[in-house]
Design a protein around this nucleic acid. Structure first.
Length: 277
DNA sequence: CACGACTCCTGCTGGC
DNA sequence: TGCCAGCAGGAGTCGT
């Protein structure tokens, strides 16, 4: 489910509940996700207080500390992960792999496909970005540094099609399969166009298109958070407004031509041949 | 270095 | 109705 907007919505839902909370216990039921959940968490986390919930790309960072222990929990939701608050003593479901037990509630991670990640990076909050999985992450697309000049330069050696290039998290983080298609649709750029053969003029449309696509999605998801943390982005608010994603064979909302579905780097791409060149 | 294919895993859908 | 191939929002690794 999660691309940058869903993870950000999740973070915003978690932060008010978690910041300042005391971790009483930890449960690990399925140690083997994309990586093994560190057994050491069982000893490290109880007694820790959470100071902040941050996001880097599609990773959530939960900063924890107590006397003698300081570090960040690194969580990635993979394709199918979700986090939600549940009452204490609620029996875990089949794919509920990890619990953070607090006084009033449990933060529970479910992930049927187990592509998610739960890891620990010791040290102060700033050290979390040094973790090997995070150190190689690309630019945040909602940051001021994400500009037309930057992307034009960064992509100069990328001869592959723009759509899978946009999804390379070592270049720009957080743009997944849905928002890559949507952003290119908004910008009127064909997903097939070679990245380094896209003019500065077109990037001047793409950069704001990416920003707006992601921000709109955050705003749409953000309106419906309450006690539980949003997760199934698939059925979520944003998809209803999708211009092309999952609309193969349906009329383009802008020109009425038919939306086309193709395969790029093993993933489905949706676009309107009439609007995108 | 950049790129595509392959891989991890479970669940759901669509076609027969 | 049941079965099975194919596909699903991610991303690391490996071979070219």
């Amino acid at each position: 489910m999660p691309e940058l907007p869903e993870v950000e919505v999740c973070r915003r839902g978690l932060a008010p509940e978690l910041e300042g909370a005391l971790i009483e216990a930890v449960e690990i039921r399925a140690p083997k996700l994309r990586h093994e959940i560190p057994h050491a968490l069982l000893e490290l986390l109880p007694g820790c207080r959470i100071s902040a919930v941050r996001r880097r790309g599609k990773y959530l960072l939960i900063d924890c500390s107590r006397a003698g222990v300081e570090g960040s929990l690194i969580i990635h939701l993979g394709m199918s992960g979700n986090l939600r608050f549940v009452p204490r003593h609620l029996p875990p479901g089949k794919h509920d792999h990890f619990d953070l037990v607090m006084a009033g509630q449990i933060l529970r991670l479910a992930d049927p496909r187990r592509f998610g990640v739960v890891l620990w990076q010791p040290g102060p909050p700033a050290a979390a970005e040094q973790h090997p999985l995070l150190a190689t992450q690309g630019l945040e697309p909602l940051s001021d540094a994400f500009t037309v000049d930057w992307i034009h330069a960064a992509i100069a050696k990328r001869s592959g099609p723009i759509k899978p290039t946009l999804m390379d998290s070592h270049l720009v983080v957080g743009i997944g399969n849905i928002y890559a298609s949507e952003s290119l649709f908004r910008a009127g750029i064909s997903p097939l166009r070679a990245a380094n053969r896209i003019s500065r003029t077109r990037y001047a449309r793409l950069v704001p298109a990416i920003r707006e696509t992601l921000s709109d999605a955050i705003a749409a998801g953000g309106s419906s958070i309450r006690d539980y943390v949003h997760s199934d982005g698939g059925a979520g608010c944003f998809q209803i407004q999708a211009g092309v994603y999952d609309r193969a064979g349906l009329p383009c909302l802008r020109c009425g031509g038919l939306v086309r579905q193709i395969r790029q780097a093993g993933r489905s791409t949706y676009y309107c041949p009439g609007c995108q060149h």
